[in-house]
Design a protein around this nucleic acid. Structure first.
Lengths: 157, 157
DNA sequence: GGTAGATGGTTGAGGGCTCAAGTGTGCGGC
DNA sequence: GCCGCACACTTGAGCCCTCAACCATCTACC
């Protein structure tokens, strides 16, 4: 591939800093949640998003979009959460293709128990080291990163 | 845990934006590299870091620190890369505990082949959507996130 | 009302990662 | 010289994820 737009020295340094920090955050969150709540971070998010949904319920595909998961990953994950008794699945009443996942009371309790430690971890590893201005910038930066993928179709090229 | 410092509405929104963007980046990179080079992103980084080291070589523990990996993860990964013929391992000459990993010529070729597509992907998904000012901010933000973990021992609490 | 394609979801195989436990080597103190 | 501990690394089991294949249902269209 001739004419590749290589990264400048600055860009490369920034990219690597980002990767490293990212790995740090991911490891910290996964370790903390695994230790204190016996679940990986991705599972926590599933429970958290369900807990905020009306009726503590969502279809699998809504849920997949909400937690940025592939259908397959979500299916495996919810199967596991269901075995743990934290989520229940049932058929959608009017659309026979869809499945509705619901957070159980047990699931809610586990989530409530895990939340404070998790939030504390997020704070200490991400927000505490940043100034309020940097937090604001962080939000804008990743909003910009996501923008091209909001699947409102972009201008036809 | 009473007295938890919960996230404000803004912080929560920003945190979720970050998680979502992150998942997007990770998925995009892994998919692109898996498709075009038959390896996950973590393996690419290992090859890339080795390629820049003197003699294209590093001890396993240096390498682990460089790519932010646990010893175990790295060991598994290098074992696989060695089976593929892209890396060789040999004993350190003066420290019998250490192992030196070296990028092979085949490994270098694979890396050189994969690099342009990978860089293009990084650009299109991360740098292109950002202004130069935001790129600079990104670097400073994650430098700040990493700072508390530079294991120069901090002030004794 | 029948058919083609889109949509919603699951499954199994294969691979990567974590955690805990293990091996072997170096080093400081006695 | 030996003992104990730290260090460098590896291993295996189990878990999570990806990818591709699959089934079922819905929808549009003729």
């Amino acid at each position: 591939m001739r004419g590749t737009r290589w990264l400048s020295a600055d860009e490369q340094r920034i990219w690597r800093t980002y990767l490293q920090a990212n790995q740090l955050l991911r490891d910290a969150l996964d370790r903390q949640l695994q230790r204190d709540a016996g679940m990986p971070h991705g599972y926590y998010i599933i429970l958290a998003m369900l807990s905020e949904a009306p009726g503590r319920s969502m279809t699998m595909s809504q849920l997949a979009r909400t937690v940025s998961s592939s259908p397959s990953r979500l299916s495996h994950a919810v199967a596991k959460l269901e075995r743990a008794g934290w989520v229940r699945r049932r058929r959608h009443e009017t659309d026979g293709r869809a499945t509705i996942a619901t957070l159980t009371d047990d699931g809610f309790d586990v989530l409530a128990e895990a939340a404070p430690g998790h939030v504390e971890e997020v704070r200490s590893v991400l927000f505490d080291p940043l100034t309020p201005e940097q937090v604001r910038q962080l939000g804008e930066i990743f909003t910009a990163v996501l923008a091209p993928h909001d699947d409102r179709p972009g201008p036809p090229s």
